[in-house]
Simulated scan of single mutants.
Amino acid sequence: MKTIQLKQDSRHFLIKSYRKLPQLKEEILELSNTTSVKLQMSILGKLGQDWVLNNKQTKLAQIELTYYLKGVLEAKSDFAIFCNPEIGTLFITGFLLPQFLLNMNGTLLGEMSSGPYGILRGLGITENKAAKYLKDLNEKGFLLILRVYDHELKIIKELL
């Protein structure tokens, strides 16, 4: 009997920061138009200081942002807003949403002070890069996080 060894593609995470949501949308459209690869993506964003989770205007803005991001991602994607003591009010959409909303003894992982850092580290991002991405998130406002595999890596890197 002969055994066959199958080589499994390694997964990689590419992260890029953006200052404005329309820039992010434009890049996602370019990625989806240029490549036939079905991208797995998440957007982690920082909301302004005026976001209060129980305010009526904030709820309306949340609905508007949810629909906007669903349009950006061109998919039915869940959306959540949570507060992190280190960064502020954040939103997450896409494939990473379950990690950020993981309930740890009554507190969401994303709400813990080291939660976003720990999630990035869990993806295999180095300490220095994880710290840099969180600094970018704090300063610029949005992170696009892509999960790609070996055969897609070169194509996506060239586009970003």
Score class of each variant (00 low, 15 high):
142 F>R: 03
150 D>C: 01
65 L>R: 11
35 T>D: 05
140 K>H: 13
80 A>C: 05
124 G>W: 03
158 E>L: 14
75 A>T: 13
16 K>P: 00
78 D>H: 07
130 A>R: 10
137 L>F: 04
25 K>P: 09
127 E>I: 07
136 D>Q: 13
45 G>N: 04
90 L>C: 05
18 Y>M: 06
88 G>P: 12
138 N>G: 01
37 V>H: 09
19 R>P: 01
116 P>D: 04
29 L>T: 06
153 L>V: 10
110 G>L: 02
97 L>C: 08
90 L>I: 06
47 L>Q: 11
28 I>F: 06
145 I>H: 10
114 S>D: 12
42 S>L: 02
82 F>H: 09
3 T>P: 07
120 L>T: 10
101 L>S: 11
55 N>L: 02
99 Q>N: 14
46 K>Q: 11
106 G>I: 14
160 L>P: 05
144 L>T: 06
42 S>W: 03
72 V>P: 14
137 L>E: 03
138 N>E: 09
25 K>Y: 09
112 M>S: 14
136 D>W: 13
121 R>H: 14
135 K>Y: 10
86 E>N: 15
114 S>A: 13
122 G>E: 08
57 Q>N: 12
128 N>Y: 01
133 Y>P: 00
18 Y>G: 09
159 L>D: 00
86 E>F: 07
100 F>Y: 14
91 F>M: 02
152 E>Q: 12
82 F>K: 05
48 G>N: 14
27 E>F: 10
115 G>K: 05
160 L>R: 09
53 L>I: 15
102 L>K: 12
121 R>N: 12
124 G>V: 03
35 T>N: 00
111 E>W: 01
99 Q>R: 11
115 G>C: 00
16 K>E: 11
26 E>A: 14
5 Q>P: 02
54 N>L: 15
160 L>D: 02
119 I>C: 06
98 P>W: 01
6 L>K: 14
114 S>M: 12
125 I>R: 13
73 L>Y: 15
41 M>D: 07
70 K>E: 05
129 K>W: 01
33 N>A: 12
106 G>P: 14
9 D>G: 04
89 T>W: 04
151 H>S: 10
117 Y>D: 04
55 N>W: 00
66 T>Q: 12
158 E>F: 07
84 N>I: 09
36 S>R: 08
120 L>N: 06
60 L>Q: 13
155 I>M: 11
42 S>N: 05
12 H>K: 10
146 L>C: 13
153 L>F: 08
124 G>T: 07
63 I>R: 02
130 A>Q: 08
30 E>A: 03
83 C>E: 15
35 T>V: 06
149 Y>M: 06
10 S>W: 05
41 M>C: 02
51 W>K: 12
50 D>Y: 11
122 G>V: 03
138 N>F: 14
30 E>F: 07
64 E>L: 08
12 H>Q: 05
49 Q>G: 05
